[in-house]
Design a protein around this nucleic acid. Structure first.
Lengths: 117, 117
DNA sequence: TGGACAGTACAACAGTCGTTGAACCTTTGG
DNA sequence: CCAAAGGTTCAACGACTGTTGTACTGTCCA
């Protein structure tokens, strides 16, 4: 669990980024991270209701396209968006994407206890 | 060659759009269309150096996610970006994507006669 | 009417992707 | 030292995707 690969944003292509964001689950992860800031990995795949392996897979894709950084602080790890670096490499892109995240997509990701309505 | 499917932008999800833009060829098509405006289909897949069937396939994906509209004017047809409609549905998204198209990507798509350099 | 041409539809293939479960590694806590 | 917990890795599977070639549809021109 030591060091995982983190993309050098200079080497990341727009195509890779678009691919990274083309999956609903990953879009939810990114949106969730954007709203919560640094978040524990457990909390993420718990909120999304997916398995550890699956989450780990998507985390990796997101790391490989430079969107996500993993922070390991012992047993429980966390992740955060590389917002500023990403903004330098792809100005305005992440903002534009996040501002267009559908509520339908977001709802599933945020609600672990859908009580209301 | 009569009527092809064009997506109702209201029903298009962000995920579909991101998927539509996650292919380098499609990204080039969109970029090319953005710079040239309405363009003949032949000119597009000629500039990209791909087969008719392949181009038609990508055109369809682009139509299905609401990015492209086909205009049939007889034998030779053309396509154009649904810029304004798309902007209404996904504000700022297309602009942000297009402004981040790498030159490397663009070079291949624009140059049918790579003379310079 | 016929043939050339532009584009689409279909079938087929290889390659990739998302998902799952099991095994593994590392840290934490007894 | 051992066991539990958090994540990653691996192999495997089905599903989807991009590409190609061929057949088909529709249009233009002679």
């Amino acid at each position: 669990m030591r060091d995982v690969f983190h993309a050098d944003l200079a080497n990341v292509s727009l195509t890779e980024v678009m691919h990274g964001l083309s999956d609903p689950l990953r879009l939810r992860i990114v949106d969730l991270l954007a709203r919560r800031g640094e978040t524990e990995c457990f909390a993420i795949y718990s909120a999304l209701g997916i398995s550890k392996s699956n989450a780990s897979h998507h985390f990796r894709v997101l790391r490989e396209c430079g969107l996500l950084r993993r922070l390991h602080q012992g047993q429980q790890q966390s992740a955060r968006l590389r917002t500023d670096e990403f903004e330098e490499r792809f100005p305005g892109l992440l903002t534009a994407v996040l501002s267009n995240v559908d509520d339908a997509l977001r709802a599933d990701s945020a609600e672990s206890s859908p009580v209301g309505a």
